[in-house]
């Protein structure tokens, strides 16, 4: 147990945290019935991926130098953050519209297009 405190932080540490976030996000998307809950799952997934980009691009982590992304990783994660903001804005507008028309945010009730 003390090994985790004494050894330098490595790429693995970040990847594990990223994986937990990603999986939480996926499970969240699958289980929530509230449209906003699904949106939160998406944010978690994006952040898990983002963390990986940053970790691969970092010079401060103990890792195999074969996997070096440099600053590109950070720039890509910036793009992801911006895209997530855009995605959240549109999704929120859609959810509010849905709520206005159907008075609910339950995604299971959004089945009008079913034949």
């Amino acid at each position: 147990m003390t090994e985790i405190l004494t050894s330098p932080v490595g790429l693995t540490h970040y990847l594990v945290v990223g994986a937990v976030m990603f999986v939480s996000g996926v499970v969240c998307m699958a289980t929530k019935r509230n449209a906003l809950g699904v949106l939160m799952g998406i944010e978690l997934v994006l952040n898990g991926a983002n963390l990986n980009f940053v970790a691969f691009g970092s010079n401060f982590l103990e890792r195999n130098p074969t996997y070096q992304l440099g600053l590109d990783g950070q720039i890509i994660s910036l793009f992801v953050i911006v895209l997530a903001a855009a995605e959240a804005a549109v999704a929120l507008a859609i959810v509010l519209n849905f709520y206005n028309n159907h008075l609910t945010v339950d995604v299971d009730r959004a089945d009008e297009l079913r034949g």
Binding site: N50, I81, A85
Partner: peptide, 29 residues
């Protein structure tokens, strides 16, 4: 975590845009 990985700009961006912008929007919704 971003700050710890040396990505200070991304960390600050995460706070400004993600936590301060996107999530306020989400909470608003």
């Amino acid at each position: 975590l971003h700050f710890l990985a040396g990505a200070d700009f991304v960390g600050a961006m995460q706070l400004v845009l993600y936590v301060g912008g996107t999530l306020v929007l989400l909470v608003f919704g």
